[in-house]
């Protein structure tokens, strides 16, 4: 604290020692805050939309008249008008389920997601239904990235066409988003995923989240997962396992099991920190929303042993 005009150096050190002892913190680097305020980040999400572009037919026994991309877009636009920092994300299985996919191969699904302003999505097992080639063919219609961190597409047509993660900066808040996919062998016909190499989702998620937190200084970390919410077979990788067996993830946006989770489930990770797991059923019947209020410390200045001016 050399040069600090307002302090008697000796008194200061003594007070700090008292203070740190008092609150149980010691040996922390000295940073300085000039101002502090809250940033609201609004996360909107869908999963397993399954080519459901029109609402369900009125005579559908379960979901008659529900869903529909046009209604979703109206709501998204309304929320974007109300909120400054919106991220719109999807957790996979965009393809398969209506003749829109059979006839146009997912072209309209990608175009509509682009029009709605999706920021990122991950791949579900059904997104391989027309093979890797069939998926690649639709990528020109998507202006948002597909995030896949545990699929290695080396030596496939998808090589270099996906990202493991992406960092979005909203009002100065760094939001790290990455994608985790389900094991394809036994679920997807081998000819459709080809040479794609699958890696353990828990290991990859841990590594990716740690990288985003420590190397990339992300303030919020979101995992787009197509593993499925949870299974009776406790050995099968799920979002529940992902939440409890990792660190650094704040939010898991899930899919695959078509689970309608009314209020995101709360779990505690390996460091006993809260993780939310959300899923919106399927077919675009719902849109999920999570608002994060984060405390902003944008004027933190590293001060290790240098002069710090506090007004």
């Amino acid at each position: 604290m050399e040069g600090s005009q307002n302090y008697n150096r000796r008194k200061f050190i003594g007070d700090v020692a008292k203070a740190t002892a008092c609150i149980g913190l010691a040996g922390v680097p000295l940073d300085v805050l000039a101002k502090s305020n809250t940033v609201k980040v609004t996360i909107l999400h869908t999963n397993d939309t399954h080519s459901r572009i029109d609402p369900f037919p009125i005579n559908d026994p379960k979901f008659g008249g529900m869903g529909g991309v046009a209604r979703r877009m109206s709501l998204i636009n309304k929320i974007r008008g109300e909120e400054k920092n919106v991220l719109l994300l999807d957790s996979g299985d965009i393809f398969q389920g209506t003749p829109y996919f059979n006839f146009y191969g997912g072209e309209l699904e990608m175009k509509l997601m682009t029009l709605m302003g999706y920021d990122a999505a991950t791949m579900g097992n059904h997104d391989f239904d027309n093979g890797i080639q069939g998926f690649v063919k639709q990528l020109p219609h998507a202006s948002f990235p597909f995030l896949c961190s545990n699929y290695d597409f080396k030596n496939t047509e998808l090589e270099g066409r996906t990202l493991p993660h992406k960092i979005f900066i909203k009002d100065g808040v760094n939001i790290g988003v990455f994608g985790i996919g389900i094991e394809l062998a036994g679920l997807v016909d081998e000819k459709n995923f080809g040479k794609t190499v699958y890696s353990n989702p828990i290991d990859v998620a841990n590594k990716t989240a740690a990288y985003l937190k420590k190397e990339k200084k992300c303030d919020l970390i979101i995992c787009l997962s197509h593993l499925g919410f949870k299974y009776e077979n406790s050995k099968k990788n799920s979002d529940e396992m992902l939440a409890t067996q990792t660190e650094n993830i704040d939010l898991i946006l899930g899919g695959h099991t078509h689970t309608f989770i009314d209020t995101p489930e709360k779990y505690h990770n390996l460091k006993n920190k809260e993780v939310l797991v959300a899923q919106t059923g399927w077919a675009g019947i719902r849109l999920g929303r999570i608002d994060f209020y984060v405390e902003k410390k944008s004027s933190l200045i590293s001060s290790r042993g240098t002069t710090v001016k506090i007004s």
Binding site: V39, G67, G172, L220, L287, I290, Y293, V294, E295, S298
Partner: peptide, 16 residues
């Protein structure tokens, strides 16, 4: 530089 202070969640259903 930031820490989560509060979370709010909501699900919208596109009903008939």
């Amino acid at each position: 530089q930031y820490a989560i202070e509060k979370k709010e969640t909501h699900q919208y259903t596109f009903s008939d």
